Lab assay of single mutants.
Amino acid sequence: TFELKGKVGKVVKIAEDHYLVESEGDKWIAYSDEKLSLGDRVMVVDVDGLKLKVKRIP
């Protein structure tokens, strides 16, 4: 299986209740415990079905 946990991506869209993150050339629906901005670099900390939980990284 394709393992996304630990992968790095970038926030490419902000929606009302989720983010769109591009990682490894694909776009994924993501959510975070912190507020993210367009262009933020993020790391995948968990995968919930087809949704990614991400956190901001420097």
Rank of each mutant, 00 (worst) to 15 (best):
L38D: 07
V12D: 05
K7E: 08
D46H: 03
K27N: 11
V12K: 06
I57K: 04
V42E: 00
E24H: 03
V8M: 06
V44C: 12
G6R: 00
A30I: 02
V42I: 13
V54L: 04
K13P: 00
L4H: 07
W28T: 02
G25V: 04
P58S: 06
D26P: 03
T1S: 15
D33S: 12
D33L: 08
V8C: 13
E3V: 01
E22S: 06
R56K: 12
H18E: 12
D17A: 10
Y31L: 13
S32R: 08
G39E: 11
K53E: 14
D33T: 10
E3S: 00
F2S: 15
V45H: 04
I14Q: 06
P58D: 09
D26K: 08
K27H: 09
L20M: 08
V45W: 05
R41A: 14
R41I: 11
L20W: 07
E16C: 12
K5A: 15
K13V: 06
W28L: 08
E22H: 10
E24S: 04
L20Y: 13
I29V: 10
D48S: 05
E3A: 01
Y31I: 13
G9D: 00
E34F: 04
K13L: 11
K27E: 10
D33F: 08
E22T: 07
G25C: 12
E16Y: 12
W28M: 05
Y19P: 00
V45Q: 04
G49V: 08
V45E: 14
L36K: 00
K27R: 07
I57G: 04
D40F: 04
D26R: 05
D17F: 11
D48N: 06
V8A: 05
K7C: 14
F2N: 15
G6S: 01
W28Q: 02
A15Y: 07
G39R: 06
E16L: 08
E24V: 03
V21A: 05
A30Y: 00
L52G: 02
E34M: 06
V47M: 07
L20F: 10
K7W: 04
K13E: 11
K5N: 15
R41S: 14
P58Y: 05
K35C: 14
K7Q: 10
W28N: 02
V8W: 03
E34P: 03
K55D: 14
L50S: 07
R56Q: 09
G6E: 03
E3C: 13
Y19F: 06
K53R: 12
S23F: 14
L52M: 03
G39L: 10
K10F: 08
K35R: 08
I29Q: 09
L36Y: 06
W28S: 02
V21E: 00
E16A: 11
G49Y: 11
I29F: 11
E22D: 04
V44E: 02
A15C: 12
G9Q: 02
E16P: 11
V11W: 01
V12W: 04
P58F: 06
S23W: 01
V11K: 00
K13I: 09
K10T: 09
E24F: 03
D17T: 11
D48P: 02
E22W: 13
K51N: 12
K7M: 14
W28F: 13
K7Y: 04
G25T: 04
T1Y: 15
K5C: 15
V21Q: 01
V45D: 10
K10E: 12
G6L: 01
E3D: 04
E22P: 00
E16W: 09
V11F: 00
L20E: 07
M43N: 04
L38W: 08
